[in-house]
Write a protein that binds this DNA or RNA. Structure first.
Ligand SMILES: [Zn+2]
Ligand SMILES: [Zn+2]
Length: 723
DNA sequence: AGCACGCCGACT
DNA sequence: GTCGGCGTGCTC
């Protein structure tokens, strides 16, 4: 420990939920420029932190010393640090936690960042005729037929792991090579006029900041546009970062990149092992990857030659992290592009209202790709009024009739319902008792195949009761329908037409989602039943009818974005109907056929819906016409969250500028969840600056409020879900 | 968040 | 007597 002024003092961001950095002294011989990982004593612990700056300490207080410098050269460059620090400020997150977020687990723990280019392998000239090879081993040998490949490329193409490659070497089938052969030439698809125009427009703007919205349905060729521009960026020596909203889309995007550019991209997602993730991250940072495909947290990966960012399915809510550090990878990506002065391409068939607002304001260029069926235009849409109609396991007669027609004509039918399980409630037919979760304000969902009652909000599972706890009868009925029930009912009703269910329950096992999607895409399955999952980025060429089982969920939600999300879901899933020879049809079952949102959907173009929704947001002063910050609080104590939020509101009214309106605290739409009572407080302002500038002081005041340690609280800047 | 310290009730 | 409940304070 030392005291006094020193030019050898560094400021370190440590992985704790604290908003400031801490000063440490460097010992003689130590060098730790900003961006370097250091091991430091912190209280009674020792932590790995990142040096953020090197100013001489202003105060005289005693300081501890850096115990070890973990990097020879800073692991984060100046641009990376600026991005991380902007994220911490914008989303009001503790600086050390954002640094942690930006690092793969292994490197967070202090593992060496040394990285060397992967070993290259080639076929042995004298390789023996192999006795028996596995499918992957054979794929590896085939991949090497055209020349030497780096181990990363070999593994990506064959599916072998490190030990698999070693075995091929031990079998004397392959041997180390000096260098990988140059990338094979990729195959460029012939571009439509609209695609070529989009590519030309984007290519013309390389090397400076611009935001573009590529607007086109699945199958309209958005990906070819991204990849054509990416090829140009790479040809000029740049790197490309492609963000996708979920793991399930990484592989198909990687396949497209390989086919188009002749080289496998690096990938970053939570499905990788810790070691693999660090390897991919370090390769990207070394500039060894031309293309990186990543999910959310990949937006922070250092890329020294970054020349283009693509955010695919930019409207997708998965880009917002909903726990811990609540940041939006889409927002971070836009800022990163601006900072680096490179183009960012946002792709979607159903753009977020935020993006459309940017287009209207002239800050984002819109490039429309008309698909074969027109850009984001639904085929014939019909509202099915289910009021006063008998529902057969959730489907009414009109829908079933339409299904029969399409199936008999050889079409494929998709039945969309955003509700897993057999029945969303189980009740006693004798006395009306309902099986509720004792930890949440929610009914338990019946999962019939497993014979369990499950709470979808807290994970509670229970065996169905033998007798009604109130009246003792054994007269239970499942109320309402989930995907499991639809699957059963449809398999019965349409015997001879294979039914395939795709939801989280049927795709738990690894590879099961891909296997089911393949059966769906091939047309082998004639009736598809599924949730959200089915709506994300997959193409089903034989689809001719889409049935939306329950459109009412999105109409009267406490979340003002529910309607937007529902419309996006319907356009995403409905837009897939009828791309084949057959004319497509979309049926929407509802109790509210006169609702303006549904009336707008019937007209069949997303643009019309979006204009209406945007106008509504302006009238109600909600995003993107205004900016929000949501303060949530939860506690096992019933009243504490609301009481605490009232104090928070009082403090806020003193702290924030008058233009910030601070609403009254309210219980969350689901007031109790996992045994905790939840409440929230909303701040709204037409301009972002007054909101943003008051946050640091407010956070400090909140932490010092009495009772702050007796409940959990968190701040959500630009909340995506209000529930 | 961790991880201490400190002060009170209830156990071998 | 001390074991442990959690309220409070601090981390360079
Ligand atoms: Zn529950
Ligand atoms: Zn009963």
């Amino acid at each position: 420990m030392s005291t006094g002024e020193s030019s050898r003092t560094v400021q370190v961001a440590v992985p704790t939920p604290l908003y400031r950095c801490f000063d440490y002294d460097l010992s003689a011989g130590q060098s730790a420029p900003p961006g370097t990982r250091v091991q430091v004593p912190f209280g009674r612990r020792r932590l790995v932190g990142v040096v953020t700056s090197q100013d001489a300490a202003a105060d005289q207080r005693p300081r501890k010393c850096v115990e070890a410098v973990l990097d020879d050269t800073p692991i984060f460059g100046a641009e990376d640090r600026a991005l991380i620090e902007w994220t911490a400020r914008y989303f009001a997150a503790p600086i050390g936690e954002v640094y942690s977020l930006a690092l793969p687990v292994r490197l967070r723990a202090g593992q060496s960042a040394a990285w060397s280019a992967p070993q290259a392998w080639r076929l042995r000239d004298d390789h023996p005729t192999p006795a028996r090879l596995g499918r992957r081993q054979q794929a590896a040998l085939d991949a090497l037929r055209d020349g030497a490949l780096g181990e990363d490329e070999l593994r990506a193409r064959s599916g072998l792991d490190r030990r698999g490659v070693e075995r091929l070497s031990a079998l004397k089938l392959i041997t180390a090579a000096e260098d990988a052969s140059p990338a094979a030439a990729g195959t460029a698809a012939r571009l439509s006029d609209a695609q070529a125009a989009a590519v030309a427009s984007l290519t013309a703007r390389l090397g400076q900041f611009s935001a573009s919205l590529v607007d086109g349905v699945t199958g309209s060729g958005k990906t070819e546009v991204y990849l054509a521009v990416a090829a140009e960026v790479i040809a000029r020596g740049g790197q490309v970062l492609v963000l996708v909203p979920e793991i399930g889309l990484v592989n198909s995007m990687a396949d497209r990149v390989r086919a188009r550019l002749g080289r496998s991209p690096r990938v970053l997602h939570s499905g990788l092992s810790d070691g693999e993730r660090a390897e991919q991250w370090l390769a990207a940072r070394a500039g060894a990857a031309d293309v990186v495909i990543a999910t959310r947290s990949g937006v922070f990966v250092p890329m020294p030659r970054l020349g283009l960012i693509v955010v695919d399915e930019e409207h997708d809510g998965s880009y917002k992290q909903e726990d811990g550090c609540r940041y939006s990878a889409r927002a971070v990506a836009v800022w990163r592009a601006r900072q680096r002065a490179i183009p960012i391409v946002l792709g979607s068939a159903t753009p977020s209202l935020e993006s459309l607002q940017l287009v209207q304001a002239g800050q984002c260029e819109r490039l429309v790709l008309p698909g074969r069926a027109g850009a984001a235009v639904l085929p014939s849409v019909r509202l099915v009024d289910v009021r006063a109609h008998q529902l057969e396991h959730g489907l009414c007669h009109e829908s079933l009739t339409a299904m029969t027609e399409h199936l008999q004509a050889g079409g494929q039918v998709l039945v969309f319902l955003n509700r897993r399980g057999y029945a969303p409630a189980v009740l006693c037919h004798s006395c009306g008792w309902v099986a509720d979760c004792h930890r949440c304000d929610a009914h338990l969902t019946l999962h019939r195949a497993r014979n369990r009652l499950c709470c979808h909000h807290c994970g509670l599972e229970a065996a169905p009761p033998d007798r009604c706890p109130d009246c003792g009868d054994r007269n239970f009925v499942g109320a309402g329908a989930g995907t499991e029930r639809l699957e059963h009912a449809l398999a019965r009703r349409f015997a001879g037409f294979p039914v395939l269910r795709i939801d989280r329950d049927t795709t738990r096992r690894v590879g099961e989602l891909d296997a089911r999607l393949a059966r769906a895409a091939s047309g082998e399955a004639r009736i598809l039943v599924g949730t959200q999952m089915l709506a994300k980025g997959h193409n089903f060429p034989n689809l001719s009818l889409v049935v939306i089982v329950d459109a009412d969920q999105g109409l009267f939600s406490a979340d003002f974005r529910a309607g937007e999300r529902m419309a996006q879901g319907i356009f995403q899933v409905g837009g897939r109907a009828g791309r084949a020879q057959r004319a497509g049809e979309v049926l929407i079952q509802t109790h509210h056929p006169d609702h303006p949102l549904l009336q707008q959907l019937v007209r069949g173009d997303y643009g019309g819906f979006a204009r209406m929704a945007l106008a509504e947001r302006h009238e109600t002063a909600l995003p993107p016409a205004s900016h929000l910050v949501l303060l949530r609080a939860e506690s096992t104590d019933t009243d504490r969250p609301l009481e605490w939020l009232r104090e928070a509101a009082t403090v806020g009214r003193q702290l924030f500028h008058d233009s910030v309106s601070i609403w009254d605290p309210t219980p969350a739409p689901m007031a109790r969840r996992a045994g905790r009572h939840r409440a929230q407080l909303l701040l709204e302002c037409a301009r972002r600056a007054p909101l943003q500038s008051g946050l640091p002081a407010w956070i400090e005041a909140l932490a010092n409020l009495r009772n702050s340690r007796k409940l959990r609280w968190s701040l959500d800047v630009d909340p995506q879900s209000m529930l």
